[in-house]
Write a protein that binds this DNA or RNA. Structure first.
Lengths: 254, 254
DNA sequence: ACCCTGATACTCGGCGGCGAGTAATCGGTA
DNA sequence: TACCGATTACTCGCCGCCGAGTATCAGGGT
């Protein structure tokens, strides 16, 4: 039991299917597609065979027999082991009970949004908003159809989850667009400045540094939960961090 | 320009920083941490150097000079190119304007939730709920501190985004827990049945198959937007898909 | 004068993901 | 019967990701 958990959720899906009955990898893949699991768990052939092999090495599954029908290629049939069943339960427990940070592209883009001129940002955010609206409509239609077809909600939980997240993102994008367009967004004048005067990187850098000095007395980039805790435990004034600014490596806003 | 876009958002962050001024990779990494970008963009040393090398191959950045201070290891300083600036803008535009499906662990877990007994599921979901609540509190505190410290909202957009998503997830989990605990969840009797009678995989499989037959006349797994569109364009009755059940592998449409 | 810690600045080997490629068979058609 | 495309069932090799490891130096303490 000294092994580290696999990271690919596809392995979890494999365990879940083999927990129903033994299968060969190709059947696993078709079943996954048939049950729409592939919408929630990234599936492709290469990874599937990699993952199966790795599960076998870990002792979670065993190749029971290889069958050949006619002169078709051999099919290796795998079955789950007791260790595999334990792993399945443990892994599910961990995934359900413990939230972990996931890095999304849009979050990355938002953190770099100031590299775009505000006008462009509004235009692109509006495009995103439009696309999200369309997806949301399609999702609602699918949900209606699911109801009509008597598909119990149990089998659509993932769908409802992504729908909920999409709607939240939609509201966020909506509000963001408005606050930029109406120029209510706090700090928008800084954003303008990055794209107005600073035609050359050199000047831009000077501006960024100047801005930095004005925020929190140069202690920018230290607004972490850790710092917060520190400030609250140390009763009294706002925690004089050693030495004002550092000067050297100092960079842009954030 | 015949190259395909890189997939690692870290490369985007590198471009964004080099757009301010030339740097060497290690300084990029420290700056990224300093500005808290590493909270939104996965950063580690290995990937950083891989990504820099790959950007250089693509002509987006160039090594301008290598400096050595004292007998320290050499520092290779990179600068962005015109092609790199174009790439930066294009990539940002794409990320902001086009939503793409991201696979999260929790979505995967939800899609496999029926492998857990309902009681266990409630317990684990409650644990998640608790953890999310704590994260949410910490986030609110951080936000307050940011306000106090005069950090303009522009530089906290990513944070507000993840906060919004977390709150949405919290509401979803809350509702889910309730609907399972009160047994209002549609289809919960099926869920019970998986864990009640079926002590052995064989019987479980029989049950699953039986259930499958009852849903939408065996056409389970076909509830896709594509099918929906098809049904709506073909005016008239609910689109008699060719032949009732297919029996064998049944490949769902997609 | 000596050591120890921490920051600096990468290097390297392995592993996992992935998608194009392969090869055989089945079913329908001319 | 000959052919074509779809389906079945994988294989292979590249490349990106990653984190532990390495080597150097500055600064502070004793």
């Amino acid at each position: 039991m000294a092994r580290r958990r696999m990271s690919n959720p596809l392995a979890l899906a494999v365990l879940a299917l083999l927990n129903e009955r033994p299968m060969h990898p190709y059947e696993i893949s078709t079943t996954l597609r048939e049950r729409r699991k592939a919408d929630s768990i990234k599936l492709n052939f290469g990874s599937l065979y990699t993952v199966v092999e790795s599960l076998e090495r870990a002792g979670c599954i065993v190749a029971t027999r290889t069958v050949r029908e006619g002169r078709r290629p051999e099919r290796t049939i795998y079955a789950i082991t007791d260790a595999g069943r334990v792993e399945l339960d443990d892994w599910m427990a961990e995934l359900v009970s413990t939230p972990v940070k996931e890095y999304t592209r849009f979050e990355a883009a938002l953190s770099l949004l100031p590299v775009l001129p505000p006008d462009d940002a509004v235009r692109m955010l509006s495009e995103r908003r439009q696309r999200l609206l369309e997806e949301s409509e399609a999702a609602k239609a699918t949900a209606r159809l699911a109801t009509v077809e008597n598909l119990p909600r149990i089998f659509r939980l993932e769908g409802e989850y992504v729908d909920a997240l999409r709607d939240a993102e939609l509201r966020f994008v909506d509000a963001l667009i408005t606050s930029i367009a109406t120029r209510e967004l706090d700090g928008i004048e800084l954003w303008d400045v990055f794209h107005a005067d600073a035609a050359r990187p050199e000047e831009m850098h000077a501006l960024v540094t100047a801005v930095k000095e004005k925020i929190a007395g140069g202690r920018w980039g230290e607004l972490t939960p850790a710092l917060l805790a520190e400030m609250e435990t140390l009763s009294g004034g706002p925690a004089a961090i050693e030495g004002g600014g550092d000067g050297t490596t100092g960079g842009g806003p954030r």
